[in-house]
Nucleic acid binder design. Structure first.
Lengths: 192, 192
DNA sequence: GTCTATAGGTGGATAGAC
DNA sequence: GTCTATCCACCTATAGAC
């Protein structure tokens, strides 16, 4: 149920907003900057969105939904092997952060800027994505591939992945897939 | 050389600013909010700091220097064992984030809000702290306790630790030290 | 070192014409 | 669906008295 994003025009604007929110941060991005990037005047923006908050909510919904879709697809291709499923999730996560649109980055780093009502509306979407992670972590735990508390392991892995946004250069020598594999290798060195 | 923080009064104000910056974020924290928290009027703030940027720089310098000091002390107590040294670093890091003041959180999460000149002035301090991490990681790698690229492993571990700020509840059942141990356990399961 | 008062600017958002 | 024009709240920073 996509209540927030309706028209194709709105979706296009949402995509542009995501880019600016990543570059400047939500608070520093003004409606005038958004409008200019979209090729319209600031007043026109409010024909598509009630207020600036609603733009953020639209971006975050888009980003999380997209991450969920990509993760689901990746898991289908990964088959049943817990090792390859975990690796697939890590790769999918970095794909949404770097090679895909920027909306997921906004969802992760600007979540706190959502007002309470938007947060309530979107939290189940975020929870669904995290539940997918815990599921795959559980499989790896049961298979004895990794060790620790399911909850904590999920948080640590997601933290390590999310923080790459702060230092990883996509233009460098390593691909996002490389990164994902290195992380999996770090917590699961021997694959007997 | 602490050029930025001079008077004790200034240090006290810096501590209060750190708290607000963590709660609200730098951009959303107004000089009026800062002044009120400090029990003065907003105009008086500029007797202590040239502008809002300088407050941020003071907080970040304080936070990073503090993290460096605490890490050094922890390593002295940890002795020579690579395992306990790595654990000591992880515990020290979470200590600066949760049980110590909030300044290190600001240093990590608001670094991008520094203007270029302040960033240039503070980056060597941040680099010194990260170099300490890489050093300890190197020891653990050489001892065969962990595996992977020294650079990537450092980033992943720091990312996992930093992201705890977004989900960990210090009022809950687990202590920061618990968290640190669980992370070390995740990447180094067998501790003979 | 703190106050009052205020300058000077920019922010989000609205109204109504086209 | 976009424009122009504009309101006004709030923000950073300054000046000068105490």
């Amino acid at each position: 149920m996509n209540v927030i994003n309706a028209s194709p025009r709105r979706k296009e604007l949402t995509r542009l907003a995501a880019q600016l929110f990543v570059q400047e941060g939500f608070d520093r991005t003004t409606v005038r900057m958004l409008a200019q990037e979209m090729g319209i005047k600031s007043g026109s923006l409010f024909h598509h969105f009630r207020d600036k908050q609603e733009i953020l909510a639209a971006v975050i919904e888009e980003g999380t939904q997209n991450a969920l879709n990509i993760a689901h697809r990746a898991l289908e291709l990964a088959g049943d092997d817990p090792d390859s499923r975990l690796r697939a999730m890590a790769r999918a996560h970095l794909e949404t952060l770097f090679t895909d649109r920027n909306a997921h980055v906004v969802a992760l780093f600007e979540w706190r800027r959502l007002d309470p009502s938007a947060r309530a509306h979107l939290s189940h979407l975020r929870d669904a994505y995290e539940a997918l992670w815990v599921e795959v972590i559980d499989e790896a735990l049961e298979a004895g591939l990794i060790h620790g508390d399911r909850f904590l392991v999920s948080r640590f892995i997601l933290g390590a992945l999310n923080w790459t946004v702060r230092w990883y250069d996509p233009g460098g020598s390593r691909s996002p897939d490389d990164l994902a594999d290195e992380l999996v290798f770090m917590i699961m060195p021997k694959t007997p």
